[in-house]
Design a binder for these strands. Structure first.
Lengths: 158, 158
DNA sequence: TTTACTGCAAATATTTTGCAATATC
DNA sequence: GATATTGCAAAATATTTGCAGTAAA
């Protein structure tokens, strides 16, 4: 789906959500959602705020926090806390299901897709708990850090 | 494995880790590790700190933070950030592998065990990334909250 | 017209850091 | 004796809150 089409759909989804919850359709909320759907990366509140300001759209940080919470509740954005603050977010509508590899040395987060895991998880039932989505974090050491460590050990050996 | 035996083993593991990294074997580190392995619950830094103080073992909060980081790196403790601060921790040695169901309404965290998921994940390879452990968070609505919501809707209908 | 929402600033909460004193190696 | 670690306090970071003004319904 092209980006513009996706944005249109999520705008509609936001409208539905706001009406269902009897909340107001403020321009800030639509502007922030639009910015979120203009990127494919993970982001935190601060960088989203900067992005808004640089795009000549002034909002307060409080409103960014408030809106993001709303989007998470509406299922349009996912929140992640990969062990280090600040919280990271990503758009979730029409986004390929994926998992996260988190390097415990350098903190780098890498996305991976694994159909087998996705299939298993999406068919899983957990008793009376109604699952809406999954976050799988795989912690370990990325290739770059593993190489660096190896090199270091060799140096020590000398 | 009885609790005392487990504590003994993790003490040894900590010793190995500290020696390998050429760090010091301070009484604080062993005392904190011991307290962590005296509970089966998730905990945060504050409650662990209180637990230490109430047990007449005075440590500073900075030392608690410092030590926990060490334990996480040593693989003796797992860190979780379930969407709300503060970070939650749990002991990891000799602990049954499990996943977390997190209610997005009330924030309650429930543990579940699913052998199929465990098997799949522990055999999975992610390219050159060396995985050490997994965190699977299932977000959704717990039974209690689902019931409460149902009831509310019925009331509104009247 | 009502009141939810915004922006701003202050408050709170969490974690990190600097530094002098102490204890491990 | 050298220096990693501790405790304490202050600083940095992240998020929430109170309130007056604004704007959506």
């Amino acid at each position: 789906m092209p980006e513009e089409k996706t944005k249109e759909v999520v705008r509609q989804k936001l409208t539905q959500y706001l009406e269902a919850k009897k909340l107001r359709k403020t321009p800030e909320r639509y502007a922030i959602l639009d910015k979120i759907y203009s990127t494919n990366e993970h982001f935190d509140v601060d960088s989203l705020y900067d992005f808004m300001v640089n795009s000549k759209y002034r909002v307060s940080k409080a409103t960014v926090y408030n809106s993001i919470d709303l989007f998470v509740d509406a299922g349009l954005v996912r929140k992640h806390q990969f062990g280090n603050n600040p919280a990271q977010y990503e758009k979730s509508y029409n986004t390929v299901n994926h998992h996260h590899l988190i390097c415990t040395r350098c903190g780098k987060v890498q996305e991976v897709k694994d159909q087998e895991i996705i299939d298993i998880l999406s068919n899983k039932k957990f008793g009376k708990f109604t699952a809406s989505y999954y976050s799988l974090y795989v912690y370990g050491v990325c290739n770059r850090c593993a190489q660096a460590e190896k090199k270091k050990k060799q140096t020590v050996r000398k």
